[in-house]
């Protein structure tokens, strides 16, 4: 059974773009990445799943339950991390987590204490005195503390330092290993690549592609910068498969690479390479890729 399934889900409102005809299925027991640039409709979709927003048309089914009719039961069985979460900040972290636990009819105390320790949360300071990263850690813990069947996490790692991000990813893996499902949104391709079993990409409210992570990685564009000691032939680099946007600044070559890096490295190796930087795939470039595909299709029709 799918943990989340949407059918022709559409939400249009105000000036915001909303979502259009979204068909999404999130298999149980997986970590599912919902990827898209800011404003693409990720948060809108998540808020429909939570019954904060009501769809204009279409359905959203969460854990086999209707998002509108069964929202209380859905809330009982999921953990939710809002994007850029606001906490009741006049109280301490422990008081907040206790209170949220009571709203859920009690929590597994040892598990909560273990999570607090694991994320090195200072539970006894008023939340308003904590840094953004420390608040985010509390927000992460409140989503996991009642061992929900499904986690709906909106940009979970924003504000977390790399060490905590790693801990968060471990927690996601453990959680899915025990049978739960993690659905997380992100605009960071790297994060999704390393963590998720499946990825859906959304742009301007529409689903772009559902495919496995490796395929996305293969299509992903990397920014490559090579500094040479001597002269080189930029045209030769531009002629390589998967290379585009070649620019030259004196001894430095900039280009964008998609797919296999081997031909580029072999060609570069024929020269005296001073430095080589391959920047992590940038989501905007990935989307540029899709845009261009769409536009050339459009141009062909004219």
């Amino acid at each position: 059974m799918d943990a989340i399934r949407t059918e022709s889900l559409t939400k249009s409102y105000g000036r915001a773009r909303g979502v259009v005809d979204l068909d999404l299925s999130v298999p149980s027991g997986t970590i599912f990445g919902f990827l898209g640039p800011n404003g693409a409709g990720k948060t809108t979709t998540i808020r429909i799943l939570l019954d904060f927003l009501r769809p204009t048309s279409g359905d959203a089914v969460v854990l086999g339950l209707d998002s509108r009719r069964d929202s209380v039961e859905i809330h009982r069985r999921i953990g939710y991390l809002p994007g850029d979460p606001a906490l009741y900040d006049r109280i301490t972290g422990r008081d907040l987590l206790d209170w949220l636990g009571r709203l859920r009819g009690g929590v597994d105390r040892p598990y909560l204490d273990a999570l607090i320790e694991r994320f090195a949360i200072d539970p006894d300071r008023p939340i308003r005195q904590l840094s953004r990263g420390n608040r985010q850690k509390i927000a992460v813990v409140q989503a996991f503390m009642h061992r929900p069947e499904l986690l709906v996490l909106d940009e979970p790692t924003s504000g977390l330092d790399p060490l905590v991000q790693h801990e968060f990813q471990e927690l996601c893996r453990e959680t899915t290993a025990s049978g739960a499902t993690v659905f997380l949104s992100s605009h960071v391709l790297d994060e999704v690549q390393h963590l998720c079993d499946h990825v859906a990409i959304i742009r301007e409210g529409r689903l772009v592609a559902i495919e496995d992570v490796d395929a996305i990685r293969a299509r992903a564009v990397r920014d490559v910068t090579i500094r040479f000691a001597g002269s080189f032939d930029a045209d030769a680099f531009a002629a390589l498969a998967g290379v585009r946007s070649v620019t030259v600044e004196g001894p430095v070559l900039h280009l964008q690479l998609s797919g296999n890096a081997d031909p580029l490295v072999k060609l570069a190796a024929q020269h005296d390479v001073v430095d080589l930087v391959s920047a992590p795939a940038d989501l905007d470039d990935l989307f540029l890729h899709y845009y261009e595909g769409e536009e050339s299709n459009g141009a062909a029709r004219h």
Binding site: L50, V72, H75, I78, P82, P85, A86, L100, L103
Partner: peptide, 14 residues
């Protein structure tokens, strides 16, 4: 406006 409503309404409460 503060955003705490999200945290509250995500609980099993109408």
């Amino acid at each position: 406006e503060r955003g705490t409503l999200d945290l509250l309404l995500a609980n099993p409460i109408t």
